[in-house]
Design a protein around this nucleic acid. Structure first.
Lengths: 200, 200
DNA sequence: ACCTGAACACCGTTCAAGT
DNA sequence: ACCTGAACACCGTTCAAGT
């Protein structure tokens, strides 16, 4: 048994059921060893989770920007990043919890700098644009994860959005009462944000 | 002892140290009763946390929109909401975890509908604008909480952003290596987003 | 150097027994 | 109707003892 073997099995367990389901005893059972062997190889549970988060971040694929304009390339890049982060939600959640969010976005940020420069922004304005885009993308993914983990919303959204609540905009009422297409919403939000940052 | 008294003490404990620190035994000690009495009043730990999240959402203050233009009013409204959500981070985190995010934002969403209408958007476009703004605001707060909870970032940000990494934009390199002023970043992101959604 | 079982101090929860 | 202590099945972790 090696530290890497422990991490492999731990990653598998977390991937399937989340960190809460990862118990030292369960892990030992899966490995076919005594619980206490694990401590020799990877330290305690906390260090194990740290190492797992670390490895997750290290193995994230790099996403590339494609498209004709800087705006289109930024949107493409951040859509790829979202997809990447959503591929193993539990492991990514772990990385978040362990404070590796910054690290997870650094490769993308370098690409963003390139695009923001191409759009004509420099210095402070460029830095702010990169950070705004990063915060938005990370935040969106976090909100999405939150909604999916959540049980059925308490008062059904449909009930909350009757026509008067929508200030007599019946189309809006119907939209708000319906489910959210997060894929499209993400694209729309990125486009609006890029327009706001690059335009004018 | 009443269910409300249990919730009061539980809220206090969570407010100070987060949900992980709330143990049934610790709660009983604080209440001066046997552990098992709690079960009679509020059910098990899970139901207790649900009730606590519920109460937290119910007691959220309503934020108002102020300002001359719809754009300014939206920014003001969402800044107030952020401040409100950051006032008791642990309790709000609990509400998030329990899937009450939607509910927490519904009052603000009604106000947003009003402003988005005032800005001239209707129907589908209006609904999308409201959702984009909501997702961004919630997401931003989640990211912020994440950064604060996190330990010192692993490779110091300063090291990651040397001048070549910033593609020879020295000002940008300095900005990215420094700390983030989230207050200003939030305002800037909202302004860009509103401009993108309302403009053109 | 690596693995083990026994033991400790913590959990949440149940349940029969009290008043 | 309300409260209790004993007991159960789970945790993570330590440590002395093995090979």
């Amino acid at each position: 048994m090696t530290a890497d073997a422990v991490l492999d099995v731990a990653a598998e367990l977390v991937k399937r059921q989340g960190t809460a389901a990862l118990t030292m005893r369960g892990l030992a059972a899966e490995l076919g060893t005594a619980v206490t062997s694990i401590y020799w190889h990877v330290g305690n549970r906390d260090e194990l989770l740290d190492a797992l988060a670390e490895r997750t971040v290290r193995e994230l694929s790099v996403v590339r920007a494609e498209g004709a304009t800087p705006a289109a390339r930024v949107v493409h890049l951040l859509q790829g990043l979202r997809r990447e982060l959503r591929s193993h939600p539990h492991l990514i959640a772990l990385a978040h919890e362990r404070g590796l969010t910054e690290r997870m976005f650094h490769p993308a940020q370098r690409a963003l700098v390139h695009e923001v420069h191409a759009a004509g922004l420099r210095g402070r304005r460029a830095a702010r644009a990169v950070r705004v885009l990063t915060f938005h993308a990370v935040g969106f993914v976090l909100v999405e994860r939150n909604r999916e983990r959540a049980p059925a919303p308490h008062p059904a959204e449909a009930e909350l959005w009757d026509v008067p609540a929508a200030q007599n905009d019946a189309v809006l009422a119907r939209e708000m009462a319906g489910p959210v297409d997060t894929e499209r919403l993400y694209a729309a939000s990125l486009e609006a944000l890029v327009a706001g940052l690059f335009g004018a």
